[in-house]
Structures are given as structure tokens and as C-alpha cells.
Design a binder for these strands. Structure first.
Length: 382
RNA sequence: GGGGGCGUAGUUGAGUUGGUUACAACGUCGCCCUGUCACGGCGAAGGUCGUGGGUUCGAGUCCCAUCGCUCCCG
């Protein structure tokens, strides 16, 4: 019996090429008294090292973030999972009472692959911080996540690179299956739920096989892993579209690491419930802002005297109070406030986008909404 | 008044004994970022080498004059 409740609120039948987009209410037990109620589809801001960069818990509440991410690999290295547990687990440590999902560190094995050695047992790697040697196993990943006390614990998987041969992908896939099973042997805390991750690269038959393997295990939710790692956006969307229907309808589906606003729209259209991506936060710090009309590179000279709001259609505090000229000035001057305001807006934009999609699904007009979304972006940002 | 030093991209500077399209940093301009090592990455534009002569096959580099700035001595 799953500790996670997932109640679909919209019709998900797909007769003939109709929208598979769906809305649901997800309930997590919660570690601090009350259960967490989450509305999907949703986007989860990334807070790798125990902080959504530039955002306080109050900010996150204000933009109505539902779930945020933490990272097993990073928190293990610094400040250390045992210390975090001593300090009240991740929730109390970072002063955030909402739900937290921790990624297993599997992706870091891939993204920091320089000096990693992978074998069937686990991964030996060197810290990106001080070069010290460490070893991760599926068991240790679970123990770390247990100590962190996150609400959603991700399986420790192997993400094959792109491009990869069929043999490489198959090997990563079977390892991911074996590691998933081993992880399940490690007990978690009462409030914690587990998600499995399937792989398969861009090989449709391997995707199917991997999904079946992972689905045979008692996970509370399922994640599509190994996408948006270098393949074209079209291929990524295609794989998401092909693989989402492989997953059970009555469990949450999580497309990991995605993506751009249009990727979220297409993911939702394909039936994805959960997303996470560093894009809104990282790009905010690098001066790229997302708006209903498209991207804005706030450092561009053409905004120097622009007294208009960043996004005329946005109701966030940043768009209410500040001009593009001011936001550009802050960025160019490398003011700390720049990162903060940009991040606040970008995350607000992403979350508002998800709210709109959820509403459209519940009102049975998702396809119509999507057309408007794309039409608005055809206008030049200026 | 006498003597020395310096004038090279928007800025600060590098330019070996004279030798191809004069270099760097910062700044400017543009693009990129997909389970975060990353307030970062990539690229572009921008210079009649203070000015005028001279020597030389060839001068940012040597010589003369001149202008500007600066230091030292009277």
C-alpha cells in the first residue's frame, strides 16, 4: 500500500491523438505533522545544496512552490548528511516546511563523470570540492536520503551519456534495474515515499523494457530519466511523448531535468505530472528571463531605457514594481539583488505556467490554451 | 630656466636587438545554459600606435621637430 495518494481529477483517456494532459491531487504524508497536498502537473524548483539560490522559504511560499529539490550527492559532500540529520533533517535545517524531493546523486555520476569509475556494485568518484575519493552505492544513496528526511526519495540510477551505443544504454539500463531493487531493501522513514527511474536512452524498445522492469517494483511514482542531456529538443519531446504512456496511469509521472517552457507544455500534453529543471534559476542568474512573449536577455542594450515591466502579462512582484531598465542596471552592475529578482520572476513564471495548464486541463481546454501559449510567443519580445 | 620619463582599443597596460592581418585584461555588443561543480560559457565589434617630418626594402619600435601630461633640480 502506497503512502502517497494520487487522485486524478481529469479525464485522461486518449482515444485518437487527443490530449493526454491530466491534472491530479497528490498527497504526501509529511514529516512535520500535516500531510502535503500537491496539485499536478507541477514544476519543482531546484535547490541543490539546500537552497533554491536566491530564494528564501518565504519567497518560495509567495510564488506557491509546492515541492523543491535537494541533492543527495551535494549534501553528502557538504555539509554531510549525518550533520543535516542532527540539525533536524533537511526541512528544519533549511527552514522549509514544504515537501522536498531529493535526487539520488545518479545524475551527478553522469554529469561529473570526469574521474568516476562505475561498476556493478556502485560508483567511485572524486569530490568536485576537494578531490577526495568517495564511493556511492544504491544502498548508501538511500541511507543518505533517509538521513536528509526528504519526502520523495529517488532511486539511484545510471544515466548513460548521449550519444551512447545500444550496448552502453542496455548496460546502464540493467544496472539501473538492479540498483533500484537493491535500494528498495533499505528502509526509509515513515513519511518518505520512493520514486523509481527508468532509462533506455533514445532506443524505444529499451525504453519500453526499462519501464516494465522499474514498474514491476513497488515504487510510489515513476520518473523518466536520461533525457535532456544533449539530444535535440525535438528528440527529447518525442521520447517523452513515446515513453509517458508506458507508465501506470494511477501513479505520478516525473520527467527529470526538463526543461524550457515549451518542453513543459509538451510534457504536460504527453501526460507528465512533475518536472524539475535548473533552467529558470540558473538562467535568471545569467540574465536570461522567461516571459509570456518569449525570452528576454536583460543585459541587452535595448532595455537600458525601457520603462516597461519585464513581462506585461506577469503578476509577480518583480513585474509589478520594477522596470526592465532597472533590472538591466542591476544585472550589469552585478548587484546581488539582480540574481534574486530575476530568480523570483523566472520561478514565478514557471509556476504560473503550470497553474495555467492545470486550470486549462480541468476546464477541458488544454489544446486551446497551448495554441494561445505558442501564439503569444510568436510576437517579438520587444 | 635646466634635466628626465610617458603619450598604443572606451579604460589600464604589454609590445623582445626595427620584420606578416599591433596583444591582454576590463568595458561594450550579441548568443547560449534542460535530475546545478557554474552570478557562468561562447563569440563579435573596437586602434590613421599624440602630431608633422626624416632614416630604411620595411618604423609602435631609430632620429629631428612639435604638442600634451608628469617627475626631479634651480
Amino acid at each position: 500500500m502506497s503512502k502517497l495518494k494520487f487522485e486524478l481529477q481529469s479525464d485522461t483517456r486518449d482515444s485518437q491523438g487527443n490530449s493526454r494532459a491530466r491534472a491530479a491531487k497528490m498527497t504526501l504524508p509529511g514529516s512535520l505533522g500535516e500531510p502535503h497536498e500537491i496539485l499536478t502537473p507541477m514544476f519543482m524548483p531546484v535547490g541543490t545544496v539546500g537552497s533554491v539560490k536566491g530564494m528564501t522559504p518565504g519567497d518560495l511560499k509567495q510564488i506557491q512552490a509546492q515541492v523543491i529539490l535537494g541533492n543527495t550527492y551535494h549534501l553528502y559532500l557538504r555539509p554531510g548528511h549525518a550533520r543535516v540529520e542532527r540539525l533536524g533533517e533537511l526541512h528544519r535545517f533549511m527552514g522549509y516546511s514544504g515537501p522536498i524531493l531529493t535526487d539520488s546523486g545518479g545524475f551527478q555520476v553522469f554529469s561529473l563523470a570526469g574521474l568516476n569509475k562505475i561498476d556493478d556494485e556502485g560508483v567511485t568518484f572524486q569530490s568536485h570540492i576537494d578531490g577526495s575519493s568517495h564511493r556511492f552505492t544504491p544502498e548508501l544513496s538511500m541511507e543518505i536520503q533517509r538521513a536528509l528526511g526528504s519526502d520523495i526519495v529517488m532511486a539511484f540510477d545510471q544515466c548513460p551519456p548521449y550519444p551512447a551505443t545500444e550496448d552502453q544504454v542496455r548496460s546502464a539500463m540493467s544496472r539501473t534495474f538492479a540498483w533500484a531493487k537493491r535500494g528498495l531493501n533499505i528502509p526509509l522513514k515513515d513519511h518518505q515515499t520512493r520514486f523509481g527511474i527508468f532509462q533506455g536512452g533514445l532506443y524505444e524498445h529499451l525504453r519500453k523494457e526499462s519501464a516494465q522492469q522499474i514498474m514491476s517494483l513497488p515504487f510510489d511514482g515513476f520518473a523518466i530519466g536520461g533525457l535532456s542531456i544533449g539530444e535535440s529538443p525535438d528528440m527529447m519531446q518525442e521520447m517523452a511523448r513515446l515513453t509517458t504512456p508506458l507508465l501506470p496511469k494511477d501513479r505520478p509521472r516525473y520527467l527529470m531535468g526538463v526543461g524550457r517552457p515549451e518542453d513543459l507544455v509538451e510534457g504536460v500534453r504527453a501526460g507528465v505530472d512533475m518536472f524539475d529543471c535548473v533552467m529558470p534559476t540558473r538562467n535568471a542568474r545569467n540574465g536570461q528571463l522567461f516571459t509570456s512573449r518569449g525570452k528576454v536577455n536583460i543585459k541587452n542594450a535595448r532595455y537600458a531605457d525601457d520603462t516597461g515591466p519585464l513581462d506585461p502579462d506577469c503578476s509577480c512582484e518583480v513585474c509589478q514594481k520594477f522596470t526592465r531598465a532597472y533590472l538591466r542596471h542591476l544585472f550589469v552592475s552585478k548587484e546581488l539583488l539582480s540574481a534574486r529578482l530575476n530568480t523570483f520572476h523566472n520561478l514565478f513564471y514557471y509556476l504560473e505556467l503550470m497553474r495555467q495548464m492545470r486550470a486549462a486541463i480541468l476546464e477541458g481546454r488544454f489544446d486551446e490554451w497551448a495554441k494561445t501559449f505558442y501564439r503569444n510567443r510568436e510576437d517579438d519580445v520587444r
